[in-house]
């Protein structure tokens, strides 16, 4: 059963990963990327790491990829223009491809080596939520906190970059609005004909 599920899932991951770079339409690329994310979380479920699988979906598919899609959908892409620039990017692309290929070759070279320890999704605990929590808040506490601070800095940076106080913009003040009384909002005037106020 597991072998069948693994082969199906990994085939889908590989094909959709290929389609990410082969698809002509960038939105299709992102959609294939999402499919790849989703299927790899299926692979994580298969090895018993269901917590990581769910996190992968919530964080990457549910939030990060939505923003990707958002940005890509808003882009106005001119395909002819893209093709013209193809040669400009070719050397850089070749460099990246070479580094990637080398890395994959190194990984493939270690495949025959013996693993030092057998894999266990939830050691010393009932569920792998507990297992992750136990190491994350004890052994790796400092790293965990540091990554939290890094995220905080990124968040503040994004806010600082985009926050602009423009003068002359009418804003709604909820307190003012709900704090209005009849006395200050309405004034009755007795207007005489022919005179105005």
């Amino acid at each position: 059963m597991e072998v069948i599920a693994f082969s199906i899932l990994s085939t889908i991951v590989l094909i959709s990963a290929l389609c990410v770079i082969l698809a002509r339409n960038p939105v299709h690329s992102v959609l294939f990327l999402i499919l790849a994310f989703f299927t790899s979380s299926g692979l994580l479920v298969l090895i018993g790491a269901e917590f990581l699988a769910m996190l992968l979906i919530v964080v990457y598919v549910g939030a990060v990829a939505v923003l990707f899609l958002f940005v890509v959908m808003m882009l106005d892409i001119d395909f002819a223009e893209l093709k013209k620039q193809f040669l400009d990017y070719a050397p850089f692309g070749a460099l990246v491809a070479f580094v990637f290929l080398a890395e994959i070759a190194i990984v493939a070279g270690t495949m025959g080596m013996e693993r030092s320890a057998s894999f266990d999704a939830s050691p010393n605990a009932e569920t792998n939520v507990e297992a992750i929590g136990q190491v994350m808040y004890t052994d790796y506490l400092l790293l965990f906190q540091i990554s939290g601070v890094v995220l905080l800095i990124a968040m503040i940076g994004a806010i600082v970059l985009t926050l602009r106080h423009r003068p002359g913009v009418k804003r709604q003040s909820v307190e003012k609005q709900t704090g209005r009384t009849r006395e200050e909002a309405i004034e009755l005037k007795d207007v005489r004909p022919g005179q105005g106020i």
Partner: peptide
């Protein structure tokens, strides 16, 4: 009977947005 049932629900309902975005685009 998933051990991470709540997370599963959160994950799947967060995927629901794709139906809408894809339909819109």
């Amino acid at each position: 009977d998933l051990n991470v049932g709540v997370l599963y629900l959160l994950a799947m309902s967060s995927l629901g947005v794709y139906g809408v975005i894809m339909a819109g685009w």
